[in-house]
Design a protein around this nucleic acid. Structure first.
Length: 425
RNA sequence: GGAGAAAUGGCAGAGUGGUCGAAUGCGGCGGUCUUGAAAACCGUUAGGUGUAACAGCCUCGGGGGUUCGAAUCCCUCUUUCUCCGCCA
């Protein structure tokens, strides 16, 4: 969430910036400022009363100690009124505080100045295209769901039986390919300085709030009701929350973590479109990279992450393009996002396989993730970033479709040491 | 799942109603000494909020309560440990 300080000091700029995200913030912000002022007045009064009360209590203590019982009892009487006053002020403060919070969490993050204006996916800016789109022979242009069946490597019907739509069963070389991709992605991340972690796949409410999934996107996560846990939609949630309520030292930057996890998404409201095969699943595997960065260099970190992801798609020999998301297509929490898409040759479609974002201090403010500069007394909010490196299903879709040959599906060179086979046939 | 014990600063560990946001030790930082280092000695060292800077306020696992006053008493939740049961 945005800091109240920013809203106090730079309200007009915030309103202008949020227009790029197609968000009209004026009414909310005016209301916020109004409540904030009221809150500070009440807080002031409350603290004065508390101060007085603390003083009297101290006096009473001393008087009793000196045996001046009568004076002590007299002093006690004075507290009755004050106590009532603090009680009222306190409940007033709590009310204002929660009103303020409810409003401020509704404001999305400010977009970076590079973010193009636009309404939706069609307005995203293609900033780079790479790789070569393969020309498929007519006899070899099956979509991946047919290939999956032909080679018996992914069984969608079986997943239907066990769980439901969107929970495929990977079999034989299909399963091995998953494992190979996960190992390859993790190894590359570790080579680039990321520490591997294996976090819980269920998180509590506070974690969901910290990274911005709650309260808004509640319906997108699976919920284990009895214990009030949420199944993670991405490793971003547990990994970033490692640092919730932490104060790190500036010299510890950059903090880089990577994690493989399954991801669970309800995908409510997205039925019917682009959901065939591996294109959209309820459970999928992903390797995530997370950066906790000094604010001054967070955009350098973002570039570094984009490079890292680009390397992966290059090594996998997939045709790809990099998009800079426009204001209308960006997530609530992001300040700048690059999406990676690979071309899946039989479907003749670009598929999103990675999203790399800088959240600046938006998540950090929710997480209370701060850092301290050497010699400084005050703490500042860190910047958080994350990106998929990479999400598996659509990579697999493109690999299957693009690499189909009369001899079977050719595994890219980089993966062969991991799969132990060169062809799926 | 049952029974019991516990949760205090970076760590260890005192504190069971009154100038306690908290002894002491270790660690950290600064200094004296030293060619340098170690040792020794001296000083300093929780977080948040707030302020121009002070002050003030909040925080002893979380929340609530009793009291003029709570780290200390009561309720509740969470977590950890020990024993029993079950179990990959």
């Amino acid at each position: 969430m945005l800091t109240i300080k920013l809203l106090r000091e730079d309200k007009e700029r915030v309103i202008q910036k949020l227009k790029i995200k197609n968000f009209d913030a004026e009414t909310i912000i005016n209301k916020i400022i109004e409540i904030d002022e009221a809150k500070r007045t009440v807080q002031n009064k409350l603290e004065q009363s508390l101060s007085e009360l603390n003083n009297i209590s101290k006096q009473v203590g001393i008087l009793f100690k000196d045996g001046k019982v009568e004076e002590a009892n007299k002093a006690k009487e004075k507290t009755v009124e004050l106590k009532n006053e603090t009680k009222d002020l306190n409940s007033e403060l709590n009310k204002l505080d929660s009103d303020l919070n409810n409003l401020i969490v509704q404001l999305p993050n400010l977009p970076n100045e590079l973010v193009p204006i636009g309404k939706g996916a069609e307005d995203n800016e293609i900033i780079k295209t790479g790789g070569k789109i393969p020309e498929l022979l007519e006899s070899n242009s099956l979509p991946h769901w047919d290939l999956a069946k032909k080679y018996d490597i992914i069984d969608f019907e079986l997943g239907n039986k066990i769980t439901g739509a969107g929970f495929p069963v990977y079999k034989g070389k299909g399963a091995k390919l998953q494992r190979a991709l996960i190992s390859y992605f993790l190894d590359r991340a570790i080579e680039n300085g990321y520490d591997e972690v294996m976090p819980p796949l269920l998180v509590n409410e506070a974690s969901g709030f910290g990274t911005g999934q709650l309260p808004d996107k509640e319906g997108q996560m699976y919920h284990a009701g009895i214990d009030n846990f949420y199944l993670i939609p991405t490793a971003e949630v547990p990994v970033t929350n490692i640092f919730r309520d932490e104060i790190v030292q500036a010299e510890d930057f950059p903090i880089k973590k990577t994690a493989y996890t399954p991801c669970f998404r309800r995908e409510a409201g997205s039925y019917g479109k682009d959901v065939r095969g591996l294109n959209r699943l309820h459970q999928f595997d992903k390797v995530e990279i997370v950066h906790i960065s000094h604010p001054e260099v967070s955009y350098k970190a973002l570039d570094e992450m984009v490079n890292h992801v680009e390397n992966l798609v290059k090594e996998l020999e997939l045709p790809y393009r990099i998009l800079r998301l426009c204001g209308g297509d960006m997530s609530f929490t992001s300040a700048l996002t690059y999406d990676f898409e690979v071309f899946s040759a039989a479907q003749k479609k670009w598929l999103e396989v990675s999203s790399v974002s800088n959240f600046e201090e938006f998540q950090a403010n929710r997480l209370k993730l701060r850092f301290k500069e050497k010699g400084d007394k005050k703490t500042k909010l860190a910047h958080t970033l994350n990106g998929s490196a990479l999400a598996l299903p659509r990579i697999v879709a493109a690999l299957l479709e693009n690499n189909q040959t009369p001899d079977g599906i050719k595994i890219p060179k980089i993966l062969v040491p991991y799969t132990g086979f060169e062809y799926i046939n």
